[in-house]
Design a protein around this nucleic acid. Structure first.
Length: 735
DNA sequence: ATTAGGG
DNA sequence: CCCTAAT
């Protein structure tokens, strides 16, 4: 059964992809819609769980199921061709970046901070207040956030390339150097922040809805007061020894982890208050803000290693009136980051691939949190528009320009034939190729464009078009930069063996290539190489690519643009999925390595004049479906402190009141939803019942487990009693 | 939006 | 953690 959700625009995309002949291009912004983001969720990789800083990552966590699910989706990389394509993409991206302030973004520190800020903004309570307080009303600041989702990800290919058409202008050459670029890129970009949106009112500060008014509630109130359970225990005499402090203040647990606000703001430059910059509303913002900061900081902390995305921060940015407000979030939600183990059998030729050091797998922990999980929300909230397109796709422009500059298109032709006049690149490429195979034919095809997975952008309405462009650019860049992998699909089947020659794979001069497709996929394994910024010979101006945007009238022409460096621009947060490699990395690395390896030889396709190659179809078997999927959230094991807080809250409130538990003990923990708490409780109960030897992950003090069992037993009994005899409210207390 | 359960 | 059904 298909998920209902799928029905969205995504489905459309998918369909489109199916049709072989379509060409899709980024077209972006024309159809952007504005809407508020409530929440989003990330997908884990198959293995899924990422545990950045934690030494003891519980293996147990790795969900088998998730693996199972995701596996099928994963795409494999294939040989040179892939490398070539990937290289091109990257190079393109690279070039594009330059123009667009990327530099600014590169600063990790700054970015990180920004992200934090961003997260802060996201907090509901905080956010709301911030906006309000900041005086960012519609007039000044866009109170409304624009959220876009660019949809889809797979690359679409040109199905039909007019034979002649495209070629000349646009064809780009891939150089051997690409690989480097590739690696460098990924490295540099490393971490992304995760953002979370909460929409719920529930989380508002101070809001507490539960109040039956019964005695029970009263019992729960005072910190010093004993929980019903405790009372009961006392009565019954089954008191369990507890070393733990009696009650935790709500904040306590958080505090442990919490970082000083300073963290967030530490970098003055980095700090960007949700609403304008700074000062003005700051004073007005009270505690809430602080709290939020803490929580945020904490969150970041936990994952920071993995997720922080270097973003641009605008320091002074605030040129515009509520500049601070601007924040953008992007989420990359590609679900299928990982390569599934299951796939392996496909290839006939599967060879063992050597791993390359360069691409050593690296896990990024990027997550997007979603505060709430209602599926419906996702469906409604995110609008996606895909861009499709006309010839002049975004990339197109860039590509076409300088000959030799990286374009998305890859064309190959018979070597014998004279290459495009265009460039020197050719020669080099050619040379390599020759070594590779001397007399073979070249396969020619052109890729008109790739779609970017999901791109979420949140930006204030008053942002300038320029900032929007930059935002989109960054989002795209980040995605590409992360370590992009290209998958090759032939006849709907993934070509996994990178070591095969095109001919062996069936992609040959004489074959029909209509079923050839490429996919862009996040590459879980990233190149470690720290090249901050490999220079890419091929420079595209991304800005050009984005050009279409310019047409859109800025809602509020603000002064962002002027300052490119400082980056008044909105901060983008990418949430990408960073699957942990431990688990399923198995196959993926191979792909990568093979890719690398091959690249050496024939990495580049020789660009050639366009041929009459049939358009390559992007394939897409389940692709469409996937594109819609949301990334799984990263796994964040509960700390002992959190467990303690949870136990404490449950002792007091009982089971079945997760929202209250959340509010009480985890209000500041954005990443812990009531569902999470409920689930955790469930697991705690289970854990408490099994032998210590069977437990995994960070050990939970037996004392806590005992309390868990005790509380569970107590509340279960209560529940039973209530059902039997509903009337007495007092039961809770008394018992 | 929450809860409760199963996966 | 995810997903769903039922509230």
């Amino acid at each position: 059964m298909d998920h209902a959700q799928r029905g969205n625009g995504l489905g459309i995309l998918g369909d489109a992809s199916d049709s072989p002949t379509k060409v899709e291009v980024f077209k972006t912004l024309a159809n952007i819609r504005y809407f508020r983001v409530l929440k989003k969720r990330l997908d884990y990789g198959s293995s899924g769980y990422q545990v950045p800083a934690m030494p003891h990552v519980p293996r147990s966590a790795r969900g088998k199921r998730s693996v199972r699910k995701k596996v099928d989706d994963n795409q494999m990389c294939a040989f040179d061709l892939l490398a070539t394509v990937a290289g091109k993409l990257l190079s393109e991206r690279e070039s594009s970046l330059t123009p667009c302030n990327i530099t600014g973004t590169s600063n990790p520190t700054t970015e990180k901070d920004v992200i934090k800020q961003d997260q802060l903004d996201n907090e509901k309570p905080f956010k709301t207040e911030a906006f309000d307080q900041g005086g960012c009303d519609d007039s000044t600041l866009g109170s409304e956030i624009i959220f876009h989702r660019l949809g889809s990800y797979t690359s679409k290919e040109h199905s039909q390339m007019p034979n002649a058409g495209a070629l000349s202008p646009a064809s780009a050459f891939v150089k051997s150097g690409n690989r480097d670029v590739f690696a460098g890129e990924s490295v540099s970009r490393g971490e992304f922040g995760h953002s979370l949106h909460t929409s719920t009112t529930a989380q508002k500060c101070g809001t507490r809805r539960y109040c039956p008014g019964s005695v029970e509630s009263g019992a729960c109130e005072g910190d010093g007061i004993k929980t019903p359970l405790q009372a009961e225990q006392r009565i019954t005499g089954n008191v369990i020894a507890r070393s733990a402090p009696d009650m935790y203040s709500l904040a306590d647990p958080m505090d442990l982890d919490a970082k000083p606000p300073a963290l967030v703001s530490s970098d003055s430059s980095a700090e960007v208050p949700p609403c304008g910059d700074h000062v003005p509303y700051n004073s007005s913002v009270p505690q809430c803000r602080d709290e939020m900061k803490f929580s945020v900081a904490r969150d970041d902390d936990e994952n920071s290693s993995g997720c922080t995305n270097p973003g641009t921060v605008t320091t002074n940015a605030c040129k515009a009136p509520c500049i601070g407000n601007r924040r953008i979030k992007k989420l990359l939600a590609s679900k299928y980051w990982k390569v599934g183990p299951t796939m392996s059998k496909d290839e006939e030729l599967s060879n063992t691939v050597e791993m390359k050091p360069v691409f050593r797998s690296r896990r990024m922990s990027c997550t997007r949190q979603r505060t709430q999980r209602s599926s419906f929300k996702r469906r409604k909230l995110f609008e996606r528009f895909s861009i499709s397109a006309s010839d002049g796709g975004i990339f197109r422009e860039g590509i076409s320009n300088p000959p030799g500059k990286g374009g998305i298109k890859v064309e190959a032709r018979h070597s014998a034939v004279t290459l495009h006049g265009a460039n020197g690149a050719l020669s080099s490429t050619r040379g390599q190729k020759s070594s590779y195979e001397s007399r073979d034919y070249h396969v020619k095809f052109s890729i008109k464009s790739f779609k970017v997975p999901e791109l979420f952008i949140e930006i204030p309405e008053n942002s300038t078009v320029g900032s929007l462009k930059r935002t989109v650019l960054e989002a795209v860049t980040a995605i590409l930069g992360r370590g992009l992998r290209v998958g090759v699909l032939l006849q709907g089947r993934k070509v996994r063996d990178d070591s095969k020659t095109l001919r062996q794979a069936g992609i040959s001069h004489g074959e029909r290539l209509d079923n050839l497709g490429f996919t862009l996929e996040p590459n879980p394994t990233q190149a470690p190489a720290p090249l901050a910024n490999p220079e890419d010979p091929h420079l595209l101006h991304f800005s050009d690519a984005i050009e279409p945007l310019s047409r859109i009238p800025p809602a509020n022409p603000t002064p962002d643009q002027g300052t490119s460096d400082t980056t008044p621009q909105p901060v983008l947060t990418f949430i990408a999925n960073c699957p942990e490699s431990d688990h399923d990395s198995v196959h993926s690395p191979a792909d990568v390595s093979s890719l690398n390896k091959t690249t050496g030889n024939s990495r580049a396709l020789v660009p050639v004049p366009p041929m009459n190659v049939e358009a390559l179809a992007v394939v897409p078997l389940r692709k469409s479906r996937h594109s819609e999927m949301v990334q799984r959230r990263i796994r964040r094991p509960f700390t002992v402190a959190e467990v303690e807080a949870l136990v404490q809250a449950v002792e007091k409130l009982g089971t079945g009141r997760w929202r209250d538990v959340k509010l009480r003990a985890f209000e500041n923990a954005k990443h812990r939803t009531y569902v999470d708490l409920k689930d955790k409780w469930k697991t705690l109960v289970h854990t408490a019942r099994i032998s210590p030897q069977q437990r995994r992950g960070e050990p939970v003090p037996q004392e806590l487990l005992d309390r868990v069992l005790s509380a569970h037993a107590y509340w279960s009994q209560q529940q039973a009693r209530l059902q039997v005899k509903p009337p007495p409210a007092e039961t809770c207390l008394l018992l």
